[in-house]
Computed example of a mutant assay.
Amino acid sequence: MRFSRRFSTPARWLASIILLLVTLASLPAGANCWPLPATGSRLIGQNVFHVVQDDGGSLESIAKKYNVGFLALLQANPGVDPYVPRAGSVLTIPLQMLLPDAPRKGLVINLAELRVYYYPAGKNSVTVYPIGIGQLGGDTMTPTMQTTVSDKRANPTWTPTANIRARYLANGIKLPAVVPAGPDNPMGHHAIRLAAYGGVYLLHGTNADFGIGMRVSSGCIRLRDDDIKALYKEMPVGTPVRIINTPIKASVEPDGRRLVEVHQPLSKSINDDPKVLPILLNARMKQFQAAPETDAQIMARAMQHRSGMPVEINAHAANAI
């Protein structure tokens, strides 16, 4: 993707439409599962487009239809009304992404992009799920960690911590010591416990129809009910889990394309604006930025726009802005 709006020739338009139809036909029902890319590549998936219907549907309902996160859809379509998107407008569905710079094994959760990547053992594929994570605040922020799956429970009960009960009580809600399984349980129908931190962090479902792809939980990782059900069924106890917080990813693809994918960094303070928060580059990313093959201006614009989608930043692409 480049920050350009050039018109294509009719032949290119036709080719694009055919590619889009083929991509739509190949999209999985529910989960977004992709074959692992070729050696040296980190690029998976393919963006598609959605024409907003005149039915009053919200951005959340569109996000759910394509199983992407709410904020990911909002960042890919700046300016769209999140409550009543304009009928007839065309939305980009951000289904193309770079794999995180982490071992392709077990679960890799990138908090900054509000996604979890599952690499099933013995399969040459990756399944990507949108997630909700911990709210802004000291004891509700989801921490980074390297751990394993220690337990799985169907129809779990919820035992809110003292801090959670106090927080609810401050809002006039008195929680019981244990919330039984059922439709009122905010953990949904399945829960997967992580070993670190004494087992207080879980991946779980939800009884709400919103909040996926947002910072909404008390620290746990929230998935749509069908997604946690699929993970629960397929992922064994002992699966390695790595939780990272990386708002910027980059790749030099085998065909020479230099790609960067930038997400809004997570706020640490109520006064932070993630749209303009500085994005700190590590030594490897600084080297990528300074390489003669990289157009620094395009990369700077990508870091400013923070679309959450891969952008080509090769130096020869400068005249396409």
Results as ranks from 00 to 15, higher is better:
Arg6Pro: 08
Arg6Trp: 02
Ser8Leu: 15
Thr9Leu: 12
Pro10Ala: 12
Ser16Leu: 14
Ile17His: 13
Ile17Arg: 14
Ile17Cys: 11
Leu21Cys: 13
Val22Ser: 07
Ser26Leu: 14
Leu27His: 10
Ala29Asp: 10
Asn32Lys: 12
Pro35Trp: 00
Leu36Val: 01
Ala38Val: 15
Ala38Met: 09
Ile44Leu: 04
Gln46Asp: 07
Val51Phe: 01
Gln53Asn: 09
Leu59Tyr: 05
Tyr66Glu: 11
Tyr66Phe: 15
Asn67Ser: 14
Ala72Ile: 01
Leu73Ala: 11
Gln75Trp: 12
Asn77Phe: 08
Asn77Tyr: 12
Gly79Tyr: 11
Asp81Cys: 01
Arg86Gly: 02
Asp101Phe: 00
Ala102Phe: 06
Lys105Leu: 12
Val108Pro: 01
Leu111Arg: 14
Arg115Ile: 05
Val116Tyr: 00
Pro120Phe: 09
Gly122Phe: 01
Gly122Glu: 03
Tyr129Glu: 04
Ile131His: 03
Ile133Thr: 05
Asp139Lys: 13
Met141Arg: 13
Met145Val: 08
Gln146Ala: 13
Thr147Cys: 02
Thr148Met: 03
Thr148Phe: 00
Lys152Cys: 09
Asn155Cys: 06
Trp158Phe: 08
Thr161Tyr: 05
Thr161Met: 07
Thr161Gly: 15
Asn163Pro: 00
Asn171Ala: 10
Lys174Phe: 00
Ala177Arg: 12
Ala181Pro: 00
Pro183Lys: 08
Asp184Gln: 13
Pro186Thr: 12
Gly188Asp: 08
His189Tyr: 07
His190Gln: 13
His190Tyr: 15
His190Gly: 01
Ala191Asn: 00
Ala195Gln: 14
Ala195Asp: 15
Ala196Phe: 04
Gly198Asp: 08
Gly198Lys: 10
Gly205Phe: 07
Ala208Asp: 13
Ala208Phe: 07
Phe210Thr: 15
Phe210Ile: 14
Val216His: 03
Ser217Phe: 08
Ser218Cys: 06
Asp227Ala: 15
Ile228Val: 15
Glu234Val: 10
Pro236Gln: 09
Val237Gly: 00
Val237Met: 03
Val237Leu: 03
Gly238Ala: 10
Ala250His: 14
Ser251Trp: 07
Glu253Tyr: 00
Asp255Ser: 04
Pro265Leu: 04
Pro265Cys: 05
Asn271Arg: 13
Asn271Lys: 14
Ile279Asp: 00
Leu280Arg: 12
Gln289Thr: 07
Ala291Tyr: 09
Pro292Glu: 05
Thr294Lys: 03
Ile298Phe: 10
Arg301Asn: 11
Arg306Phe: 07
Glu312Leu: 12
